[in-house]
Structures are given as structure tokens and as C-alpha cells.
Amino acid sequence: MSFIRPNIRHPQLPVNDIGFTRADYEGALSTLCAGCGHDSISASILQSCFELSIEPHKIAKMSGIGCSSKTPAYFLGNSHGFNSVHGRMPSVATGANMANRDLVYIGVSGDGDTASIGMGQFAHVVRRNLNMVYIVMNNGCYGLTKGQDSATADKGSASKKGVPNPYSSIDLCETAIQLGAGFVARSFSGDKEQLIPLIKAAVSHRGFALIDVVSPCVTFNNTPKSTKSYDHVREHMNATGTFDFVPLKDEITTQYEPGKTEEITLHDGSAIRLHKASENLDFSSPRSAMNEIEKYKEKGEVLTGLLYLNPQTPDTHELLGTTSKPLNSLSDKELCPGSDVLKSINSSFQ
């Protein structure tokens, strides 16, 4: 089924390849605090989908509970959204994806939603390699319940309350790599240049794609002693490199310096072209990725950008052997075995 955009209201606005304007990807007005990192991420998601020319109704937005999980109301207003319960978005996304494998699933969660109450579901959706983009808006605290430390708060980091966090932190990227995710990246809400191509690549990746986005909470965790504040992240951010997303149709022409540039073709034929900052990082090696992440951590730095990529991992449907048609489109005839079969089933019980 393909749809022609009926009428364009603002002929002067730029349209994407399928005739939609950027406004067609907008959502309701955000009610988050002014300056909240989450709003910038929303804008990047919106921009990525616009640029990727995905029909808005072919996207499903999934979220849990939290300030971060509210954001799907503020982007892609023409897409269906499901704001589920705290920490359980992965299972709802799993069911939705089982019903219709043809939609693009963008999950949005918080660090509380993912790394505490939802840690179990997060781990398992990664293991199953569900075909979805999973964005964590990571502010190191529980914004919506007024700033308690979350499990991703770095040890020693202090929020507005001023008490340094005594516990070890969970690194969601390392967890995801360890559990077999095919696409793992870290970014910063304030770095659209990096985030937008990452989201685009994540959408094009088939299988589970995690982007852990540090996203400062201006109200509760933007203090000088917080490692998730704007200033701290800006000062300590180190990218694994820069990154272009090359859609399928674009011909690759430019030549790059060998060794530092790597091109990886994704399952849908599009490609990402990386200009690595360090030759030490091998994106296809979980061990190398973990090593680099830890190396930077030791220095008190945050490594951002693409961290790990394996475009060839089978997703949940492949693992299950599900038919290529969306299950929600199967007809009575395809699903109901009929009365004759039931007669023979009955006789097997006699």
C-alpha cells in the first residue's frame, strides 16, 4: 500500500522524498521543563524520520513512564504511540512487533525506566534482538519523581540534593553489547550533528539498536558535581569519530583516507560511513568496544558515537521463523483450520 500525500498546505516548505513537510512529523507542544535535554532528542528523532522519508503512520512510538517516556507525545503526531507502564515498554514493543513486523518501532525510555524497574525487560528485549530503535534519554536521575539518583548515575556524581551517589553505575551500552545487541551507540542530547545520523542508522539497522543519549535534567541534575550536566558532558565528551548516514539510493563518491574510514552496509542496503577518531576501535568487536568505553571512563571521559555494530544479527522474527506477512494481516482462512480438521482432532481424543 502506498499513499500519495493528499494536499500540501505550505507549498513553500521543503518536503521530503515522499512529499511530507517537517511539520508533518511534529507532535504536541512539549510540557517538559525549558532546557530539558529530552526535548532536543525529540527534535532529533523528528528530524531523522523526516529526512529518512518514513511515512509517519508506519512508525510506532513506544515508551514507559517518566519525563522521557512522555516525549513521544511531542514528536511524530501522525504516528501511533503507546505510553505503557513504568519499565515495561520492551514487552509491549515486543508484542506490537510480533503483530506487525512492517512498522518502524521507536522506543523511548528513561534511565530509571530502563536501568532500574525495567532492567529485566531491557535485558531480554536485547537478547531477543527485537527489531527496534531503543533510545534512552539518560539524565542520571528520576526526573518525574523529582530527581532521585538513578542506576546510571556515576559513582560520586551528585544531583541537586548534593549527596554523592555511593553506588556503582550501570552502563547500558556495555550491557547491551554483552547481551548481543547489533547496534550500540552513545550520544549527547546537545549534539544533533552526531545524534541525527545515529538515529537514522539505528532505524535502518535490522535488529535491536540502542542509543544511550546523555540528556541533562536541568531541574534536578545539572549541577557542577553531576557527571550528567551540560557542562560536564560538553567538556568530557570524546567521539569515536564522525559519521555519515548514506541512504540506499545515494551513490558513494568521496574517497577517504584509508585506515580511518570504514564503511558498513546495513541490512536494508543503506550504509554508514565512519571517520574513526582512533584506529584502536574495531566496531565489529564487542571486546574492542567494551575496552574503549572503559578506557575513556577511567580517564573520567564519556565516549560517544557508534560503539558497536554487527549488521547481520537475526532479529526476533528470524529467530522464531515467523512468516514475512504481518501476523495482524492474516485472514480467517489462513488462521482457522476449519471443521474438518477439528473432526480429526476430536477423533484423536477418542
Binding site: F82, S84, R88, T94, G95, A96, N100, Q121, L327, N328
Partner: peptide, 14 residues
Amino acid sequence: AAMGMVLGASWNGA
């Protein structure tokens, strides 16, 4: 998670 899957799938028309 089992119930979450059921709701996700039913919401999505299966």
C-alpha cells in the same frame, strides 16, 4: 512481560 506482549500485540491488531 508476558502480559505486556499480549497488550502490545492486541493493540497492534493481532
